[in-house]
Simulated assay, not measured.
Amino acid sequence: MITVSPARDTTPTARPRPAPDRTARTRRRRTGSLAGLLLAAPFILLLIGTVLVPVGYAIYLSAFTDRLSGLGFGGPRQVFVALGNYATVLTDHDFLRSVGNVCLYALIHVPLMMGSALLLALLLDSAVTRFRQVWSLAMFLPYAVPGVITGLIWAYLYSPGIGPINAISPVDPLSGHGILGSIVNISQWQWMGYNMIIFYTALQTVPKELLEAARVDGAGEIRTALQVKVPLIRPTAFVALVFTIIGSMQLFTEPLILRTFTGAISSTWTPSLYVYESAFVANDYGRAAAASVILALASALLSALVMQLSTRRSR
């Protein structure tokens, strides 16, 4: 008797997919993190070496001062004074006067710089301007001149007897009444092209569709600039504003050069000159370090305030 066995089902069955390998996924994440860390390593090393270490050393120096031991025959010795140097700086009339000079300089320089650079950028971006590259290069060239050379050029232009500006100006540019305007003029001449290029580059990113729509609606060049272009580059304007404020707080080269041509600028006319005089003339490195830390904190607080205002305005 022959028995027939039932046919076997040879249809391949779908196998369940294996669960994702968590170990491999974790390994890929670690590899990606390591690659990102390696790419960021040069920046981190530069940040530590050029910013964090000098700032930390300045904070360390600001807590010490040199005092003579005994009758002075033993030479100076370093003494820990905690916040004593900060109290000395903040109660020093020369430092307070230098802060006042810088604040007055910033009140004139910052609005004038931002307004003139933005106006020039809008003129270059307008449809009526020709030879834009030539004009932008001509305005940017003063920024390429070193600050010391710029100060010397303008010092001779301001000097009586040899400078044409002194001959036609109703006020002596190197006198006590004209020195602030002279320094503002030098800063304008050197940095206006730099800020103009920043604004002009931002204007190139404005969508052409919006400009065409504004022209179709009958808006002229001035209305398009004020209501379309300027609002769209507001974040760039705030960044340029932060840089300009920080540069104003660190004013140093221009008064240092002009000081040799006039007696209207003292050795502590700005906070940076105060730091320079304290460190390299009076050899009081603790006081110089404390003034540097105060200046850095003031710049950081002003920058944070401007960025906070920028964030609120964007919202």
Rank of each mutant, 00 (worst) to 15 (best):
A225I: 03
I186Y: 07
A106R: 13
L34A: 15
V216Q: 09
I162W: 05
I183T: 02
A144E: 10
P271D: 02
L137F: 14
Q250V: 07
L203Q: 02
T50I: 05
N195T: 15
A214W: 09
P146A: 07
G218I: 08
V306F: 12
T224P: 03
A121L: 03
W191N: 08
T268G: 14
Y158P: 06
R29T: 14
I168H: 15
P164R: 04
L301M: 11
A19P: 13
I168P: 15
L118Q: 08
V239Q: 15
S69Y: 05
A24I: 01
R67N: 01
I245A: 15
W191D: 05
G74L: 06
P173G: 11
N166A: 04
V171R: 09
A24C: 02
G178I: 05
P76D: 04
R313W: 01
L302D: 00
S292D: 05
T205M: 13
M192F: 11
A167V: 15
R215I: 15
S136Y: 06
S126K: 11
T91S: 15
T65R: 14
V281P: 07
I149D: 08
Q227C: 13
P111V: 15
G147F: 13
G220Q: 06
L90M: 12
G72W: 04
L112N: 01
T3Q: 06
K229L: 05
L52Q: 04
A298H: 01
P255I: 07
N85Y: 07
E277V: 12
L83R: 02
P111A: 14
L124M: 06
